[in-house]
Computed example of a mutant assay.
Amino acid sequence: MDISFIHNNEKFNYMVCAVIINDNNILAMKDERSPYYYLPGGRVMMGETAEEAVIREVKEELKIKVSIDRPLWLNQSFFTEDGDHLQYHEICIYFLINIEDTILLERGNKFYLQEDVHFHQFEWLKFDSLKDLYFYPLFLKEEIYNLPEVFTLRTDME
């Protein structure tokens, strides 16, 4: 069971995201449900650690087994989602992911993978291009240039 619930017009999510970087590019994705780019990841399940969740989500979405370099941020977000228009309260832990022992870079700059019934488009985006793209989370457009060395708490009120 995902740690997520809806009450009236509000939704709570406990999420994890994978920050996957190669040569000043970040791996982002989009699918048929979202008009914007976002990071690989998803909801944490009941009884699962955040570390287990991010490794599971990357395996489900990218079909590779990765390791975690370090946690970067715990981000508390309060926003209205562009797709469903619900008011979100989201807790997301962002992890820097190590892809050294994977075939990920062999897939090219843009590739597609299927997860269940959904098709995901993955693309390596240049750090400098993020400011001009429809990309979430917004804070990453600036913070990507200076990843924290220690686990950092952030709060976003959009």
Rank of each mutant, 00 (worst) to 15 (best):
K131R: 07
M157G: 09
I93L: 00
D128R: 09
H118Y: 04
T49I: 00
V58K: 06
D128E: 12
L133T: 01
Y14S: 04
C17N: 02
E142W: 12
M157V: 11
E10R: 13
F122L: 02
Y37K: 01
Y37A: 00
L72D: 04
Q76P: 06
F12H: 15
S67W: 13
I55E: 12
V16Q: 08
D2V: 05
L74R: 03
L153M: 04
H89T: 15
V58F: 03
N13A: 11
M15K: 04
S34D: 02
L138V: 00
P148K: 01
E81K: 14
I144C: 11
A50C: 02
F95E: 05
E51V: 10
Y38N: 08
S129T: 13
R154A: 01
D69K: 14
S4W: 07
Y94W: 01
N8R: 11
Y112G: 02
K131L: 09
N146C: 05
T102M: 10
K126N: 13
F78D: 09
L153K: 05
W124N: 07
M15A: 08
I6F: 03
R56A: 00
I21T: 15
T152D: 01
N9C: 09
K110F: 03
K63I: 01
F135Q: 08
R56P: 02
E10Y: 11
P148F: 08
R33G: 14
H118N: 09
I91F: 15
R70P: 12
L86S: 00
V66T: 11
S129Y: 11
F135R: 07
Y38Q: 04
M157H: 12
M1F: 06
E48M: 07
D156K: 08
